[in-house]
Simulated scan of single mutants.
Amino acid sequence: MSRRSRRNRDLLDAYHVGGDRRARDILIEENLPLVRSLAGRFTGRGEQVDDLVQVGSIGLIKSVDRFRVGQGDLASYAAPMILGEIRRHLRDRAALLRPPRDAGNRPRLAVLPLDNDGPYVSEACRTELERGEDRALLDPGLSSLDDRARLVLTLRFYGDLSQDRIAAEVGISQGHVSRVLDRSITRLRTRLGAS
């Protein structure tokens, strides 16, 4: 377990077991670099990075509040929630700006469907359902990995971070990240193939 993971675990215990609200604040502040790292990959989409960090911080706060001992490493638990908040924000913002399909070349205001049968809702629901099914298939295999391997896989496949960025985030070399990914994927394939 890395020093950061131990520190997170101690602060989580102080908050969840001891009720220490200051430990919660410290924990959130010390994990903001993870939020910045994940938000940074969404630059160039018409949003300021600071706004994305603010939105992603909501996911971090939810993760800290919902985390329970035994769920592994906080960073690997928090990354999907942080990314989910950022993606939801971008999707909602894009839906507000998207013109209707029949607009042609005429500039008009976009009108969103008021019911739940609109294309944005059904596409988002289908995507989330597919992701949920994938996660349900992977959960048994992921639980067999150590905290670092889960974190590396989460950052790579849920966070879409490069191996260099993962190395910087986790504090190991890019070569080590590559080896962890190879070993973990092989282990997951073996474990999922057996079940």
Results as ranks from 00 to 15, higher is better:
D117H: 14
R126C: 03
L60G: 02
V69M: 10
S63I: 00
R93G: 11
L34F: 08
R108W: 05
Y15A: 05
R126V: 02
R131T: 01
R87I: 11
P119L: 10
L34N: 03
G70E: 00
P100Y: 03
R131D: 03
L137E: 09
V49P: 10
I28M: 05
V35N: 08
T43Q: 14
R98W: 01
G40T: 00
Y120D: 15
S63W: 05
R36P: 02
K62A: 07
V111T: 13
A95F: 11
R88A: 09
L129H: 13
G59F: 04
G118M: 05
D115S: 14
A94Y: 11
R98S: 13
E47M: 11
C125A: 15
P100A: 09
R108H: 10
L114W: 06
V69K: 11
G18Y: 06
L32D: 00
Q48R: 15
P80Y: 03
S144N: 02
S63C: 04
R126W: 07
C125M: 12
G40A: 08
R131E: 07
P99A: 06
R88N: 09
N116K: 12
G84H: 07
E130N: 11
I86Y: 07
G44D: 01
V49I: 13
Q54T: 06
D92L: 07
A39D: 04
A124I: 00
L145F: 08
N105I: 10
R91V: 06
S37P: 03
D92N: 14
E85I: 01
S37C: 15
A110Q: 05
S57G: 15
P33Y: 02
R21V: 04
L27Q: 03
G46D: 00
L97Q: 14
T43R: 15
R108Y: 05
L27E: 00
Y15S: 06
M81A: 13
Y77H: 08
Y77G: 04
A136E: 06
A79S: 13
G40V: 00
S144G: 09
R41A: 04
G46L: 07
R93P: 06
V49E: 12
G18S: 09
E128I: 02
R91G: 02
A23T: 00
P100N: 13
D139Q: 14
L109F: 11
D25G: 13
L90D: 01
I58D: 02
D92F: 07
G46R: 07
A94G: 09
G104Q: 01
G18D: 03
R135L: 14
